Lab assay of single mutants.
Amino acid sequence: DEDSERELEKLRKNNASKEEIKEVLKRLGFSEDEAKKLAEKAG
């Protein structure tokens, strides 16, 4: 959803580590696997 998109955008701009991105995604309700895949894509 839009909030998670914004959250990811912010992380990308701040050069967050894949680990940080994954944690945020998991907080947003993604499964471990989904979060890992998305973090890879974002990283």
Score class of each variant (00 low, 15 high):
1 D>F: 14
1 D>Q: 13
1 D>S: 13
1 D>V: 12
1 D>W: 14
1 D>G: 11
1 D>P: 11
1 D>K: 14
1 D>N: 11
1 D>R: 14
2 E>F: 14
2 E>K: 13
2 E>M: 14
2 E>D: 11
2 E>S: 13
2 E>I: 13
2 E>A: 11
2 E>R: 12
2 E>T: 12
3 D>P: 07
3 D>W: 11
3 D>S: 09
3 D>L: 12
3 D>A: 14
3 D>R: 10
3 D>T: 12
3 D>Q: 09
3 D>E: 13
3 D>K: 11
4 S>N: 10
4 S>Q: 10
4 S>A: 14
4 S>W: 15
4 S>G: 12
4 S>T: 15
4 S>E: 06
4 S>Y: 15
4 S>D: 08
4 S>M: 15
4 S>L: 15
4 S>V: 15
5 E>A: 10
5 E>F: 13
5 E>V: 11
5 E>H: 11
5 E>T: 10
5 E>Y: 13
5 E>K: 12
5 E>S: 11
5 E>N: 10
5 E>R: 13
5 E>M: 14
5 E>G: 07
5 E>W: 15
6 R>H: 09
6 R>I: 09
6 R>E: 07
6 R>G: 06
6 R>T: 09
6 R>Q: 05
6 R>V: 09
6 R>K: 12
7 E>H: 08
7 E>P: 01
7 E>R: 07
7 E>I: 15
7 E>G: 01
7 E>S: 06
7 E>V: 15
7 E>A: 11
7 E>D: 04
7 E>K: 06
8 L>N: 01
8 L>S: 01
8 L>V: 06
8 L>E: 03
8 L>Q: 02
8 L>F: 04
8 L>T: 02
8 L>M: 05
9 E>N: 06
9 E>V: 06
9 E>S: 07
9 E>F: 01
9 E>Y: 02
9 E>L: 06
9 E>H: 06
9 E>D: 09
9 E>K: 05
9 E>R: 07
9 E>G: 06
9 E>P: 00
9 E>W: 02
10 K>P: 05
10 K>L: 11
10 K>N: 12
10 K>T: 12
10 K>W: 12
10 K>A: 10
10 K>R: 14
10 K>M: 12
10 K>V: 10
11 L>P: 03
11 L>R: 00
11 L>M: 04
11 L>S: 02
11 L>W: 02
11 L>T: 01
11 L>V: 03
11 L>Q: 01
12 R>L: 14
12 R>S: 07
12 R>E: 06
12 R>V: 14
12 R>I: 15
12 R>D: 04
12 R>T: 07
12 R>F: 15
12 R>H: 10
12 R>K: 11
12 R>W: 14
12 R>Y: 14
12 R>P: 02
13 K>P: 04
13 K>F: 10
13 K>M: 08
13 K>A: 12
13 K>I: 06
13 K>Y: 08
13 K>T: 07
14 N>V: 07
14 N>G: 08
14 N>E: 10
14 N>H: 07
14 N>Y: 06
14 N>C: 15
14 N>R: 11
14 N>T: 08
14 N>A: 09
15 N>S: 05
15 N>H: 12
15 N>F: 08
15 N>P: 01
15 N>M: 09
15 N>E: 07
15 N>T: 04
15 N>I: 02
15 N>Q: 09
15 N>G: 14
15 N>A: 07
15 N>W: 05
16 A>T: 05
16 A>W: 05
16 A>R: 01
16 A>F: 07
16 A>C: 15
16 A>N: 03
16 A>E: 01
16 A>S: 05
16 A>Q: 03
16 A>H: 06
17 S>M: 04
17 S>G: 06
17 S>T: 09
17 S>C: 07
17 S>Q: 05
17 S>E: 04
17 S>N: 05
17 S>H: 03
17 S>K: 05
17 S>P: 06
18 K>Q: 12
18 K>V: 14
18 K>F: 15
18 K>T: 13
18 K>D: 08
18 K>Y: 14
18 K>E: 11
18 K>N: 08
18 K>I: 15
18 K>H: 08
18 K>A: 12
18 K>M: 14
18 K>P: 13
18 K>L: 14
19 E>P: 00
19 E>I: 04
19 E>D: 10
19 E>M: 04
19 E>F: 04
19 E>S: 06
19 E>W: 07
19 E>N: 05
19 E>Q: 10
19 E>T: 05
20 E>K: 09
20 E>H: 08
20 E>D: 07
20 E>L: 09
20 E>Q: 11
20 E>T: 07
20 E>S: 05
20 E>W: 10
20 E>V: 08
20 E>Y: 08
21 I>F: 05
21 I>W: 10
21 I>L: 07
21 I>T: 01
21 I>K: 00
21 I>V: 06
21 I>P: 00
21 I>N: 00
21 I>E: 00
21 I>S: 00
22 K>E: 15
22 K>I: 15
22 K>L: 15
22 K>S: 08
22 K>P: 00
22 K>T: 14
23 E>C: 12
23 E>S: 06
23 E>T: 03
23 E>Q: 06
23 E>G: 02
23 E>I: 03
23 E>K: 07
23 E>P: 00
23 E>D: 09
23 E>R: 06
23 E>F: 00
24 V>W: 14
24 V>I: 09
24 V>T: 09
24 V>A: 14
24 V>G: 03
24 V>L: 13
24 V>E: 06
24 V>D: 02
24 V>M: 11
25 L>V: 00
25 L>F: 04
25 L>A: 03
25 L>I: 01
25 L>T: 00
25 L>E: 01
25 L>S: 01
26 K>Y: 02
26 K>G: 04
26 K>E: 06
26 K>T: 08
26 K>D: 07
26 K>V: 14
26 K>I: 15
26 K>Q: 10
26 K>P: 00
26 K>H: 06
26 K>F: 02
27 R>Y: 08
27 R>L: 14
27 R>I: 09
27 R>C: 15
27 R>V: 08
27 R>H: 08
27 R>A: 13
27 R>Q: 12
28 L>K: 03
28 L>G: 02
28 L>M: 09
28 L>P: 03
28 L>D: 02
28 L>V: 02
28 L>T: 00
28 L>R: 01
29 G>W: 01
29 G>L: 00
29 G>N: 02
29 G>D: 02
29 G>E: 03
29 G>M: 00
29 G>Q: 01
29 G>K: 01
29 G>S: 00
29 G>F: 00
30 F>G: 00
30 F>L: 07
30 F>D: 01
30 F>H: 03
30 F>Y: 13
30 F>W: 10
30 F>V: 03
30 F>K: 03
31 S>A: 05
31 S>M: 05
31 S>E: 07
31 S>P: 06
31 S>F: 02
31 S>L: 04
32 E>I: 03
32 E>H: 02
32 E>A: 05
32 E>M: 02
32 E>S: 03
32 E>L: 02
32 E>G: 02
32 E>T: 04
33 D>H: 05
33 D>F: 07
33 D>R: 06
33 D>Q: 09
33 D>L: 08
33 D>W: 06
33 D>E: 14
33 D>Y: 08
33 D>V: 07
33 D>G: 05
33 D>M: 08
33 D>A: 11
34 E>W: 06
34 E>C: 13
34 E>P: 00
34 E>I: 07
34 E>R: 02
34 E>L: 09
34 E>K: 03
34 E>N: 04
35 A>V: 07
35 A>Q: 01
35 A>P: 01
35 A>D: 01
35 A>S: 04
35 A>I: 12
35 A>L: 04
35 A>K: 01
36 K>R: 11
36 K>C: 13
36 K>W: 11
36 K>A: 14
36 K>H: 13
36 K>T: 14
36 K>G: 12
36 K>I: 13
36 K>V: 11
36 K>D: 15
36 K>E: 15
37 K>W: 08
37 K>M: 09
37 K>Q: 10
37 K>H: 11
37 K>Y: 12
37 K>I: 12
38 L>H: 05
38 L>Y: 10
38 L>F: 09
38 L>N: 02
38 L>M: 10
38 L>D: 01
38 L>S: 02
38 L>I: 13
38 L>V: 06
38 L>W: 12
38 L>P: 00
38 L>C: 14
38 L>E: 05
39 A>E: 03
39 A>V: 10
39 A>W: 05
39 A>S: 09
39 A>Y: 06
39 A>D: 01
40 E>T: 03
40 E>C: 04
41 K>P: 08
41 K>H: 12
41 K>M: 13
41 K>R: 10
41 K>W: 14
41 K>A: 14
41 K>I: 13
41 K>T: 12
41 K>G: 12
41 K>Q: 14
42 A>F: 15
42 A>W: 15
42 A>M: 15
42 A>G: 11
42 A>H: 15
42 A>I: 15
42 A>Y: 15
42 A>K: 08
42 A>E: 11
42 A>D: 11
43 G>V: 15
43 G>Q: 10
43 G>N: 10
43 G>T: 13
43 G>S: 13
43 G>E: 10
43 G>D: 12
